[in-house]
Design a protein around this nucleic acid. Sequence first.
DNA 1: AAGTAGGTCAACCGCCAGAAG
DNA 2: GCTTCTGGCGGTTGACCTACT
Length: 298
Amino acid sequence: MGRAPCCSKVGLHRGPWTPREDNLLVKYIQAHGEGQWRSLPKKAGLLRCGKSCRLRWMNYLRPDIKRGNITPDEDDLIIRLHALLGNRWSLIAGRLSGRTDNEIKNYWNTHLSKKLRSQGVDPNTHKKLSELNPPVQKLAAPKKRIKNTACSNHTKNKGKKQPKRESGLEREKTKIHLPKAVRVTSLSPSRNNSNTSFESCMTTASISPSNGSAGYRPSDRDKPRPDSDPDDRVGFFIGCDAVDLVNGSFPKDQSNVAASDEQLEDLYEEYLQLIEADNHDRHDDHAQLELLAESLLS
DNA sequence: AAGTAGGTCAACCGCCAGAAG
DNA sequence: GCTTCTGGCGGTTGACCTACT
């Protein structure tokens, strides 16, 4: 059955988003919530494909997104999750609060795979290259550039397909710093449910610890993959992440759970402790991660 | 200073599963 | 039960950036 394109591309804007478009999208979602992506552009006054709007929101404009500054702990977690889950970027991103699958995927492709190669590890199999095919090691890319990663992501609007480069000031304008939020309501129990409004996301925004790294898990991403068990709804909150990593199990019914701010902060603390403990006890955690992977993939 | 090669990452594409009609 | 629609995912692209020559 042929599938109609998600939208007619005729007359629609493509390429990098302008600050104005971002603004329109954010304002619309603030007012009406996420969802209904197909009709959203028209209602919001955007000449964009709904899919493009969704992507822009999910990967860039969402208030709970943490951009750049991927910590060594996150590095390590990504590598180990990749070893267990493979290229299941959304699942991996789901274990890292505020990170998007796109960011993780890009980060993997541009940094981590090279890092692994330079360590003599095949990024696909996570096995020693020497065990697989010794000559391949020469593929390890030499680090030529010293990059200021502190602002590598969100301070640059590296417009794609832009006819002309924006000035530094102009680029800066597209940087949108919205308060981080923690979503505690499940998205889209049904397609017509627009209760997952921006407001509902924002009402719990204050629970993020001041370091700004706690928070929301992209709930939709937790939707079981087609090839995974229906019960594999992974942790809905970052706190659940901690629980998951520690126990290798998930709360049975998360869909309607709304943790209190205090609970979430506690759970986040637990998460941080886990990361710290991880440095001391990799073997135990690896076993826990394997349990996690099994539960995700079974 | 100019040219080049390679890195980065936002955005796009095609496909799929599940919901809705 | 079938068709269509919608949202989501992973892979890929390509404009832009920047270190190097």
